[in-house]
Write a protein that binds this DNA or RNA. Sequence first.
DNA 1: TATTGTTATACTCTATAACTATA
DNA 2: TATAGTTATAGAGTATAACAATA
Lengths: 179, 179
Amino acid sequence: MNDHGGTAGRDGAARPRDLAAMVVPLGRALTAAELPVLERHGLTMWAYSVLLRLDDEPVRTQAALAASIGADKTRIIGVLDDLEERGLIRRVPDPSDRRVRLLSLTPEGRRVRDAAQTAIQRREDALLTRLTATERKALLSALTKLSALSAEEIAAAGDGEGDDRDDRDDRDDRDDRDG
Amino acid sequence: MNDHGGTAGRDGAARPRDLAAMVVPLGRALTAAELPVLERHGLTMWAYSVLLRLDDEPVRTQAALAASIGADKTRIIGVLDDLEERGLIRRVPDPSDRRVRLLSLTPEGRRVRDAAQTAIQRREDALLTRLTATERKALLSALTKLSALSAEEIAAAGDGEGDDRDDRDDRDDRDDRDG
DNA sequence: TATTGTTATACTCTATAACTATA
DNA sequence: TATAGTTATAGAGTATAACAATA
């Protein structure tokens, strides 16, 4: 497996490229390309993430929202302040536990999310034109599957599969196990 | 196109997820999972990027190397210092222009790169087990194609395709064009 | 005068710790 | 006393600007 074409090393046989070495730069390029689009809609990347997540379904606490979009809970407070001020989200204390803020999208928030996402996806669709229909379908289905996995599941992948550790440099590896 | 399964919004029809919204978190998860592996081999992510790039082929200037791995030229100086001290790369002044440093891998550098990459790819292959053989092949070929595009090509995608700008919020967009 | 590499500085982003209010 | 949210502070990472060597 992993028999895709790759660039040749000096050792004769061509080494396939790492998955991460393709995914990460692609993500960076997509982000850079889409940031100006979001800007036109008055959104930062974090704000857009919040709108996408809340449109999926309302969320009960800010910490849960933050975790689900890969942010720190303190990180998104300013974002939520701004989105609330602009009337794009609702942030109401839960009557049953007034420490908790119930988070949801307003109709205006859904409108903005929809407009931004339409523009984003139009760009992405244009990019996907570079692929064949088969590749496109398989790429999206594969990405859907992989991105459905939790970070923990990805971190654990291959942990049982033989030794991860042979061929390594000699150095103390007493505290090696992933947190 | 872009007709992959997605999570339903509140507007009835299911909205497919953005490409970037799947690629970026996947890249983050892969990075997090692979960092401890690299650490065992005494490499940071930047150091590993450098080794991968130099194994591909030697590079003539540090600025070119930095650009090609998506880093700032000042960013990688410390990385190169370290790799050179450890004998993993060569950094020799070009006799024909002594401002330039010719960068290449030492045999030991190739050994370390190879060991690290083997461990990384073993993990990635285990993860790809979650996909069918067809999905796997198509995913890798699609990623290979997309990651062969320059950031500029990705940024330009869809720029001619109708108006990117309809449905946008009203705000001044005089200086909108991408860098 | 322009360019490569380097160093020093400033800035952005993010996380940590301390605080308020609810429970 | 424990938890949700907030604020203030500190840290990591990165880029910008100034500098030295070479062309």
